[in-house]
Design a protein around this nucleic acid. Structure first.
Lengths: 237, 237
DNA sequence: GAAACTACCAAGCACTTGCTTGGTTGGCAA
DNA sequence: TTGCCAACCAAGCAAGTGCTTGGTAGTTTC
């Protein structure tokens, strides 16, 4: 496809010289909102570094669609034909970009992890007290789990077992720094428990499970209120 | 099904006159430990009622193996041939007992729900204060999640999406009374949050997620300590 | 302008899947 | 004995699966 190659090369050259304003936000798919492509957009910097695929490339679109489908239907119930159809190519063509279906999952998890970590690091760095940092973490992960900031984030928990042991090890290494942010915040906090790693594990389950019952667009409970409730449990005022 | 009907009727007559000692325990598969078949074993009563299948029947063995395999490998990655092989019959013979693979999952979830509810109700009824009741609930669900009391319990959370909407509705109705126990305990408790239903949802995620990281046989953290930590978070002393 | 390369298509292969079909066996009742 | 029926086997079907192969249009490189 000429269009894809064209666009990706244009983008890469623009980003290579540090012109981040030329890169559209990949947080809100349909909008070129100016505030998203701010001068210090950390996600755009990841794309420029080559750590995250260019959002308009076929590869990135495959990963994005795959992550969303894996989240919706599960890895096993999503076929390579489903993914290909979503992107607009034939199923066989997928294997020009990835060597196997499992590699798609692994790469999707990698990008999702990097993306989420970058967003959360920025938010934590912008707060002063441990409790406000924890609130930011909770908020970030809730937004990610519900597809508001990092589409497909919840495959990290839900489809973990669909990964081969080798791939699990790779993702685990990547995820370490993400979890480290949480652990450091909990360490600085005077919470109900001593062990920061245990706190993180407990809150991880709580937040991940909201995927099964919480609807962000629902009227009875807002994302702010949910954030506040979880904060209240893991860091009583 | 001659064998099943036979055994269950034998059991029914025995239990009908209150002779629960004639009923084998289905908690510990390989043992006829006398303390398990106590005079008021609530699980044995369920079997006697016909609400739970006779543990020795092919049907119950199919459900048990299926639940365990679904838990280990996931519903989609478990084939009917896997289940049949575990029980020792051919794959086609499964469809003499169940009309579809999904029905196996639904029935397994039904039995697991009934089993867990019965165990937890008994434990809660044996405590006085709300906080001790909550501790019992946490302990019960942790034991269930880790296969110590109700094998295959965690499919209720992990394989929820593998169920058709119709089946989901059926299980949901059954699960209501189980969740109701939790909600009532939280209602009586003076916890960090007001909403008992929200408390339950948050703690449900925490406990279910322990399946992914906690090992009961591990030395660093015991099940008692884990119970106590979770209790400390959701009901600070 | 020839060669090499990228991104894709069209077709289909090898295999697995849930489930079906027709038949056999063994126990039980009349 | 005869008939019945639950429980199971043996074989295989139809649909779907991940992935491969051979080829082509367009672009880039030398």
């Amino acid at each position: 496809m000429a269009t894809t190659a064209d666009r990706s090369s244009r983008k890469n050259s623009a980003a290579a010289v540090g012109d981040a304003t030329g890169v559209e936000s990949n947080d809100s798919p349909g909008a070129d909102s100016p505030e998203a492509s701010s001068v210090t957009d950390p996600v755009a910097a990841l794309v420029a570094d080559g750590q995250l695929s260019d959002p308009q490339s076929t590869r990135a679109r495959l990963l994005g669609c795959a992550a969303r489908l894996f989240e919706e239907k599960g890895f096993a119930r999503t076929t390579v034909r489903d993914i290909a159809a979503e992107v607009g190519i034939l199923s066989g063509s997928i294997f020009h970009h990835f060597s196997s279906k499992e590699e798609i999952l692994r790469c999707a998890m990698e990008e999702v992890t990097l993306h989420a970590r970058t967003l959360m690091m920025a938010e934590v760095a912008a707060r002063d007290t441990p409790r406000e940092q924890l609130r930011a973490c909770i908020r970030c992960e809730l937004e990610a789990v519900h597809g508001l900031s990092v589409p497909g984030f919840s495959i990290l928990v839900m489809e973990w077992r669909s990964l081969s042991p080798d791939s699990q090890a790779k993702i685990l290494a990547l995820r370490y720094s993400y979890e480290q942010i949480w652990r450091q915040v909990f360490k600085a906090l005077n919470g109900p428990l001593e062990d920061p790693a245990l706190c993180r594990r407990l809150i991880r389950g709580t937040i991940a499970h909201t995927h099964n019952w919480f609807k962000p667009e629902g009227r009875s409970l807002s994302l702010e209120e949910l954030t506040e409730s979880i904060l209240q449990v893991f860091a009583p005022a």
